[in-house]
């Protein structure tokens, strides 16, 4: 196996594997978020579990962070190498005749997602880490000294979606995620060598996934914004 990740195909394997990981993570994330639309209690319980379970916090979270960082660094490396393989550009080029905009602009949609992730980390993750591991408050309660004050997660979530600016940024980012996935979902299968009699149906499923998941994220944001 030595050197496989130094080869062009190996780098694509790595890219596809990290992407699969992120796509599975998105399903989990959207499922938990969606509970906030119909049950404050369930959302609070799940958030508390995810936020305090040692397996989630100590093992899954570091793997996730590694996965994201790996994916976007590899994305930049690939883009850099690919640009370098053509030193003189065409005076006239019409790539829209042979490929989709999404497929040619994975880095662009990726960078928007990355900018969103930075905001997202600042909004939720930095706050969570500060409360839990710096202030040492693992209770998940609105008032750590009052057991009856209730969990804080749901209220914090509602709070974030008050600002129309934040909701707009959120929406635009998820539209870009949908575009990233509209090419990426099937691309990841092709990278791993899966192109067979199931590919056609998988393309259909890919479309549903790529539009469906971001759409639910957007719905959740709009729901909390307009019911606040």
């Amino acid at each position: 196996m030595s050197g496989i990740f130094n080869s062009s195909i190996g780098r694509k394997f790595a890219m596809a594997l990290s992407a699969f990981f992120l796509m599975i993570f998105l399903v989990m994330h959207v499922s938990i978020n969606f509970t906030s639309v119909f049950s404050e209690e369930l959302f609070n319980k799940m958030s508390h579990f995810m936020g305090t379970n040692p397996l989630v916090q100590g093992v899954m979270q570091p793997i996730l962070i590694f996965g994201v960082v790996f994916h976007f660094i590899m994305g930049f490396i690939l883009e850099f190498k690919n640009k370098a393989s053509r030193s003189v550009r065409y005076s006239k080029n019409s790539p829209s005749g042979n490929s989709t905009w999404m497929s040619r602009n994975m880095l662009l949609s990726g960078v928007v997602i990355l900018a969103f992730l930075a905001l997202h980390f600042y909004d939720f993750w930095v706050h969570e880490m500060t409360v839990k591991y710096i202030d040492g408050d693992m209770s998940g309660l609105m008032d750590p000294n009052n057991a009856d004050s209730g969990f804080r997660y749901y209220e914090e979530l509602r709070e974030k979606f008050v600002s129309p600016l934040r909701v707009s940024i959120y929406t635009v980012s998820f539209v870009l995620l949908a575009m990233h996935l509209l090419h990426g979902f099937n691309s990841a299968f092709q990278s791993l060598g899966a192109n067979n009699k199931y590919t056609k149906s998988l393309k259909g499923f890919g479309k549903v996934y790529s539009i469906g998941i971001p759409a639910v994220f957007i719905f959740i944001a709009l729901y909390h914004h307009f019911t606040h």
């Binding site: 062009s8 690919n82 040619r104």
Partner: peptide, 10 residues
């Protein structure tokens, strides 16, 4: 010095 494949299908 050929580039990597992005599966654009061009």
């Amino acid at each position: 010095g050929f580039g990597n494949c992005t599966n654009t299908g061009a």
